[in-house]
Design a protein around this nucleic acid. Structure first.
Lengths: 208, 208
DNA sequence: TTTAGGAGATGACAAATGTCATACCATTTG
DNA sequence: CAAATGGTATGACATTTGTCATCTCCTAAA
């Protein structure tokens, strides 16, 4: 039997969820909290296997509440329920170790999601997964040819982003230090940046 | 009724999986393929809801086969089964739009995972999810307290990594420019770095 | 062949940066 | 109360950095 706690600040939603889940023979809703704060309070005594929680709530939001609950030693698998696809929330949810993030709309799959989460698997709404690779692999957003960056300049950029000084870059590329300085200068102009530190930032934010 | 195709080049494994899944009342194993190539051939005629596929196979491996199958217009949800936790595979699986990636060991949860996947949710083994944040944003590998970095210094680090000059940081933090310079200097000493550019690199490589 | 243009280099210069010694002041601590 | 402490600030200094004008080669195009 899987014990569940539901957390949603909309009583209608939490009520509906309770009905849906209680209808399953192997799932039991042990508690319903109407706010993040209440959830934090209830979690230790209820000790549910799974917490189904709305991520957007007034007061303490879902991720904050979940973090608190997990910090307090709960072993519950947290399954976030959300109306929106918000990168920030997804990100945060993953970071604090949530076991699921699904869209309210397809709550028909809620029971099977709860079961999967309870058995240690992580569940994400299909739309959520589509976003993952974007977040994972945010390379190639920058096209060097767009800015007339030559291959040699690209090499310089990489070395700058490795923390090398002009002199070190010069040695590594068999050039004069002054030349490197000129190249850096020209790169900065092309990319509309001010100094090598900004160039390194640009590299990590746009190129890697 | 959920129709499933199993793909594994080890007949023992695919046989076991078939038994496990056929044992479920709402799941039916429609086909078993013993190689990636065979899976690609069978997929169109079988048209399963879910494909349970080993990711490491001789010849055409799991991701390649899945990619081919999906390119051919199959609407199957692909659920990868794997013995290992390989970053590269996880990455690739996500990229080609797999709906699941779970570890063979906990095949007890296979039926509920199949159901969740069939209903449009994505499923990942718990261990897999633990890796996601690492891949997503590899933060927290750095513990500021390890190096006596104060909160204020942390703020400076972030501003440096945003490409601000000392003067700009000073304005933003209501400090004197010289003070900021001293703080940067002390940060550099603590982290054993040479200049602000290296600090920005450090930030993006270890902290973000 | 002549020429235009690119890559590399120089030197000069101002600005920014990093280091250091020192000082001020409000706290905590003895 | 006095001393130690931590945060903030200065000034001086050496280096590094970014910009510019200019120069030399070398090559490819006219």
């Amino acid at each position: 039997m899987i014990s569940v706690m539901i957390v949603d600040d909309d009583p209608f939603v939490s009520g509906s969820l309770k009905i849906i889940l209680d209808n399953e023979p192997d799932i039991e809703v042990k508690a319903v909290a109407n706010s993040g704060e209440e959830a934090v309070k209830l979690a230790p005594e209820v000790a549910p296997d799974v917490i189904v929680m709305d991520i957007r709530m007034d007061g303490m939001n879902g991720t904050e509440a979940a973090q608190k609950i997990l910090e307090n030693g709960s072993k519950a698998a947290v399954l976030f329920l959300t109306t929106f696809l918000d990168d920030e929330y997804i990100n945060k949810a993953l970071k604090i170790g949530a076991m699921g993030y699904i869209i309210k709309q397809d709550c028909g799959s809620l029971p099977s999601s709860v079961r999967a989460v309870a058995s240690g698997q992580a569940v994400f709404g299909g739309k959520v997964v589509e976003k993952l690779p974007d977040l994972l692999n945010r390379k190639e957003r920058f096209d060097p040819s767009e800015f007339d960056i030559t291959p040699k300049e690209l090499e310089v950029i990489e070395l700058v982003a490795d923390g090398l000084s002009n002199k070190e870059i010069a040695e590594k590329m068999f050039l004069g230090e002054g030349t490197v300085r000129n190249m850096v200068s020209s790169i900065l102009t092309k990319l509309d940046l001010r100094d090598r530190t900004q160039l390194a930032c640009f590299y990590y934010q746009k190129m890697v």
